[in-house]
Nucleic acid binder design. Structure first.
Length: 920
RNA sequence: GGGUGAUUAGCUCAGUUGGUAGAGCGUCUCGUUUACACCGAGAAAGUCGUGGGUUCGAAUCCUACAUCACCCACCA
């Protein structure tokens, strides 16, 4: 039954198999865990709705980050015994997906209009399905322990029903209205965009100063002369004396062939120092001008149509696209002598966030959500509800916690400035607006009304409308489970009852407005509850130079390639360790490679513990297990004897378990990973395992076994594959994934190790390190054994005998832990031995007789440097300890620490001085 | 224009409530120690961006400035 463990961890051969075992076990599903008694069905439960990736292609490192962080939380809570669910899903991402397919069509020389709506949608669905399969495959590669049986899609039947129900409710509450308002329009997508779907790019524009006509008394400045064809007023600052005589007057002018009626109005927002101080008001193509028009009841003249062309009725300019029209208008202004000035101005260009096309602002008949209207049953608007949810808490819930906290401010600011949300899109792919018309009759509902002649709206909904419902829509399994009763949404699914509000929403900070805010908006309104308790925002993954990873730059690391090269566990660690919440991180391939070394190290640590004949392992697993139990009983029965190193490692391990648990509870992933690595590699492998080759006491086997098992558990959320693979060799029938998270109890019960043991062991470590250091300094051949004399006289904080017996008892370690010590003597004379190298550490004097080997100059320089450092340190410490303020105000522990540091430093100084005296 | 973050060893970054600076990678030296060379041992390396302040004590708190990055608003 012996299983050979290869020398190196071969992740390529194990990861997929391990994932299959997990999946096959059914334990991704919390119900199965409860059924098999793995977890108890007691509250609170733990749940995360995975941010659904867009079905636009494949996953990038940002997704890998999401999966890693959430999987860590999920695995931790599952092991803790919480009933834990992680719901996976995908987002149809209407505009993004449609654009992607349009691009594919373009390559084939087609476009969506050519092939028609029906064929196009079929094509999109096929594409979405392929993407979906890819995403699922990749998520599994990443080790995502999500419950695939609960998978959801923002455009499937159930989610469609939820969307329509919420729409219907909002419509009934008067929150959704249809109206002609200014919208952001992407001429390429031929669709509206929400305010935050517009991106801005700095550019240099030309600012033209001109008069509408010779007869017009003053000039105005504009960057978009072509829109001036639709001007209906000129606005000036009310305090601007230059224009006061014109205010209220209306001028009829002929502007390059178009008749304009221009009323001179005032508006406080007009900056008298910009341009000429007079602003041509184009209500149809500027948000500000629209406001001015509303305030002054101005006429609205549309100039640009939805294709980005000048509308009919503007003479020769009609039919031209906006850019061409600008050229023509400018040329004509010049020709007629109306243009007074042309200057360069830095401003920002508005672009579509999906296709980078410059967007137009224009009035259009669209569907909106009123964010300011008070909802009768809440007495507040959705904006107010959402603000309260984070500021003070709503519906008796505590407030939603955003981590890191600084993003709260951004959230509030966004909420404050939020305008009515335009939710209709002229996109084919998505949820159709659930409104049907027949003549003048309008019906809003979940399904088409009965009877003939009803025609559904062609527009689809903003993709964020359905994503905004995600935390609860993903917890519905059957259409029947959700309905409207007495104007309220009723969700009657066990999952919703168990898991909502979800425990944490983990996502990149770039989604705080698009998605996080919208979920709060929609959920507080629709289900009268918050969507999640905590929001954890991670930073962006950039390349090693800090640049954004992108295909066009060719600097994007592909998670799949990285996984093939270094294994999933290494990729996961590299995304988690060394980055702080909300901070961007620069990721290089070298970093990932570094963590592969760690997975291999862990593998070999386990290999050593498991296969070491010395500890009776490598036997029949069943026997081995019995042995373990037997030895454990023996130890607990007081039969085991613990060495200092045992006490030290047990104490450290106990501390570690507590710290890692605390770190995970507080989302301190990076710290947890670093502490684990530090303990595993340095304390456990480099020290304790090495010691175990020397010391031979009955407790060792249990300690090694126990610590390895617990380390595997602690590591499991971070590196699930390698830990599960190692666990497999224990053959206990139970998966590590569902093992119970460790507590410190074992270590406490077993030993009662204390802080003193830690300090004592540190002294031994220091001594060993000092000896090794001397050997390396003097290039003493490895084979050559040396004599070591340790004098303890100058260490006054220790009773001589205690220190003596401490060192004495550890002489085996001092001799054999890669120090090459032949004989060890402990003295209390304080005498310096002639021709011996001398090191001061931990207050003791370590002497190594080297005879003529001593390099006097080198030693003198070294000692002098050390002496100066010590003297300065002592001076400062004394100064501090003499300071009355310090003694009064500093906490006692700090004072004690300073005192002991001083004593040690003084002892070390004595040693150094002695050494120097001899050398001179 | 408003705001946020960053500035710590050659590089990439940690640093919980103020107690006197850490890791990984890289560099240098040595090593075939029976788990691992994807290893081990040792070493070098930092005025914690700059100036001021609070404090017994500041990488950490306050303030001003500089550089970089990002977000929001305006942009006639």
């Amino acid at each position: 039954m012996k299983e050979k463990l290869p020398k190196n961890y071969v992740f390529q051969k194990t990861e997929d198999k391990i994932y299959q075992i997990w999946e096959g076990s059914g334990f991704f599903n919390p119900d199965q865990c409860v059924k098999k008694g793995i977890t108890k069905n007691k509250v609170p439960h733990y749940s995360i709705s995975m941010p659904p990736p867009n079905v636009t292609g494949k996953l990038h490192l940002g997704h890998a980050e999401v999966i890693t962080l959430e999987d860590i939380l999920i695995r931790y809570h599952r092991m803790k015994g919480d009933k834990t669910v992680w719901i996976p899903g995908t987002d149809h991402a209407s505009i993004a997906t449609q654009n992607k397919v349009e691009k594919l069509l373009k390559k084939e020389g087609l476009n969506r209009h050519k092939i028609g709506k029906k064929a196009f949608l079929k094509r999109v669905e096929k594409f979405a399905l392929e993407s979906h399969d890819n995403i699922v495959r990749q998520s599994k590669k990443m080790g995502a322990s999500c419950d695939w049986s609960r998978e959801a899609y923002t455009l499937d039947q159930i989610r469609h029903r939820v969307v329509n129900l919420v729409f219907k409710m909002m419509h009934a509450d008067g929150l959704i209205y249809r109206g002609e308002r200014l919208v952001n329009w992407c001429p390429r997508c031929a669709s509206t965009l929400a305010d935050d779907e517009v991106e801005y790019k700095e550019q240099k524009a030309k600012l033209y100063t001109f008069r509408y006509a010779k007869s017009f008394p003053f000039a105005i400045a504009t960057t978009r002369p072509e829109t001036k064809l639709g001007d209906t007023a000129v606005a000036v600052n009310p305090k601007d004396k230059r224009y006061q005589k014109y205010v209220g007057k209306t001028f009829k002018v002929n502007f390059l062939g178009t008749a304009l009626n221009l009323k001179v109005v005032t508006d406080r927002e007009v900056n008298p120092r910009f341009g000429t101080g007079a602003l041509g008001v184009t209500p149809s193509h500027s948000h500000d001008d629209w406001k001015i028009a509303e305030a002054n009841k101005l006429k609205i003249v549309k100039v640009i149509d939805e294709k980005g062309n000048i509308r009919t009725g503007f003479g020769k300019y009609s039919g031209l696209n906006a850019a061409k029209a600008r050229e023509e208008v400018t040329k004509d202004l010049k020709a007629t002598g109306l243009l007074e000035k042309e200057e360069i101005l830095a401003n920002s260009l508005s672009l579509c966030y999906r296709c980078n096309t410059p967007i137009e602002v224009l009035p259009s008949l669209q569907w909106f959500i009123n964010v300011n209207k008070k909802i009768r049953r809440y007495g507040r608007s959705i904006k107010e509800l959402s603000t309260e949810a984070v500021k003070v808490g709503v519906f008796g819930r505590k407030k939603i916690r955003i981590i890191p906290k600084r993003f709260e401010k951004e959230y509030f600011r966004w909420m404050e400035n939020l305008r009515d949300w335009c939710i209709s899109r002229q996109i084919w792919f998505g949820h159709r607006v659930p409104v049907w018309c027949k003549g003048k009759r309008i019906y809003c509902g979940v399904q088409a009304p009965k009877g003939t002649g009803w025609k559904q709206e062609e527009d689809t909904l903003d993709t964020w409308f359905s994503s905004g419902l995600w935390t609860f829509s993903s917890l519905v399994q059957k259409p029947k489970q959700i309905k409207i009763q007495k104007g309220r949404l009723v969700i009657d699914s066990q999952d919703f009852k168990d898991y909502h509000p979800t425990s944490v929403l983990e996502t990149g900070y770039d989604l705080i407005f698009f998605w996080v805010a919208r979920m709060i908006l929609m959920t507080t309104y629709a289900v009268r509850d918050i969507p999640f308790w905590d929001v954890y925002l991670h930073g962006m993954v950039r390349d090693d130079k800090g640049q954004k990873m992108s295909k066009s730059l060719g600097n994007a690391l592909d998670p799949l390639t990285m996984i093939e090269k270094y294994g999933t566990d290494a990729v996961r660690l590299s995304l988690v360790v060394g980055s702080a919440p909300g901070n961007d991180q620069n990721l290089s391939e070298e970093k990932i490679a570094g963590f592969r070394r760690f997975t291999n190290k862990l593998w070999n640590i386990a290999r050593f513990v498991i296969t070491s004949q010395k500890f009776g392992l490598g036997e029949d697993p069943a026997l081995k297990n019995n042995l373990r139990v037997y030895r454990l009983r023996q130890a607990l029965g007081g039969q085991a004897s613990f060495s200092l190193s045992d006490l030290w490692i047990l104490h450290k391990m106990k501390k570690l378990v507590g710290e890692i648990t605390g770190d995970l509870e507080k989302y301190r992933f990076s710290q947890a990973g670093e502490k684990l690595r530090e303990f595993t590699w340095n304390d456990f492998a480099d020290w304790y395992l090495e010691i175990s080759k020397i010391e031979n006491n009955s407790a060792k086997i249990i300690i090694l076994d126990q610590i390895l098992r617990d380390l595997l558990k602690l590591w499991h959320p971070f590196t699930p594959f390698v830990t599960e693979k190692i666990w497999e060799s224990f053959r206990q029938g139970k998966l590590l994934m569902v093992e119970r998270w460790p507590t410190g109890d074992f270590y406490k019960k077993l030993t009662g190790a204390s802080q003193t043991d830690l300090i004592n062991f540190e002294l031994i470590k220091n001594i060993i390190e000092a000896i090794r250091s001397v050997r390396a300094d003097y290039k003493i051949e490895p084979r050559r054994k040396i004599r070591v004399i340790i004098d303890i006289k100058n260490r006054p904080d220790y009773a001589g005998t205690a220190t003596y017996s401490l060192i004495e008892s550890q002489s085996d370690l001092i001799k054999n832990l890669h120090t090459g010590v032949k004989s060890l003597a402990i003295t209390e004379s304080g005498q310096k031995i002639r021709k011996a190298i001398c090191r001061a550490t931990g207050g003791v004097m370590i002497q190594i007789p080297l005879g003529g080997l001593i390099d006097r100059k080198k030693e003198i320089a070294r000692c002098r440097k050390e002496k100066t450092t010590l003297e300065n340190q002592i001076k400062n410490l004394k100064k501090t300890l003499r300071n009355k303020n310090f003694l009064q105000k500093a906490p006692p522990t700090v004072i004690e620490k300073q005192k002991s540091v001083l004593i040690k430093a003084q002892a070390e100084l004595k040693t150094i001085t002695k050494q120097l005296t001899e050398l001179y």
